[in-house]
């Protein structure tokens, strides 16, 4: 049995578009919440922001699964490609790995992170937020100029 070509040209791009925005938005929310929490002193507001950052990165990691899967099926397993797709992938793969890694790090440590570990985590999260934003930018370029 061979895949229906119409499925690839209609369904998967729609699924990719529908799923790809969640990890982008949630990674950015996680970065903002963790940065704000890092700058604030001890208190319930800081704890609330840390909790929001925790759930945001956890759900961002879960959201990367359908986004990556639908993207791979849509492009018939293309992991790099050329032109705009190439640039999309240059940013997608490191950010995908980083989001999953950061979520695991955060889930394992919970609230037990030292101040230095928090700073490292925040730095990695900010870089990841930049990478996933760039991936989203090149994804948008494919729709507008592709």
């Amino acid at each position: 049995m061979h895949p229906d070509p119409a499925l690839w040209t209609t369904l998967w791009p729609k699924l990719h578009g529908a799923s790809a925005h969640f990890p982008i938005a949630l990674a950015l929310v996680a970065a903002v919440c963790e940065a704000a929490a890092f700058l604030l002193g001890e208190g319930s507001r800081r704890d609330g922001l840390r909790a929001a950052g925790f759930y945001a990165i956890a759900f961002a990691a879960l959201g990367t699964v359908p986004a990556v899967a639908s993207g791979l099926v849509m492009t018939k397993g293309e992991t790099l490609g050329h032109d705009l797709l190439f640039w999309h992938h240059v940013f997608v793969w490191p950010s995908f790995a980083a989001i999953v890694g950061l979520a695991v790090w955060r889930v394992l440590t919970g609230e037990k992170m030292s101040r230095r570990a928090q700073a490292r985590y925040l730095l990695a999260l900010l870089v990841t937020a930049g990478l996933i934003s760039a991936a989203g930018y090149w994804g948008g370029e494919m729709i507008v100029n592709g």
Binding site: T64, V68, A69, L72, G77, E78, T79, W93, F96, A97, A98, V100, G101, L102, A103, V104, W105, L108, T109, K112, M113, A117
Partner: peptide
Amino acid sequence: SSALAPALALAAALTALGGAWVLAC
């Protein structure tokens, strides 16, 4: 769990990339 977290995070990241590669293949 806190001490091992960065190493486990790296392992998870690499596993995720490997999974994506397998799916792509």
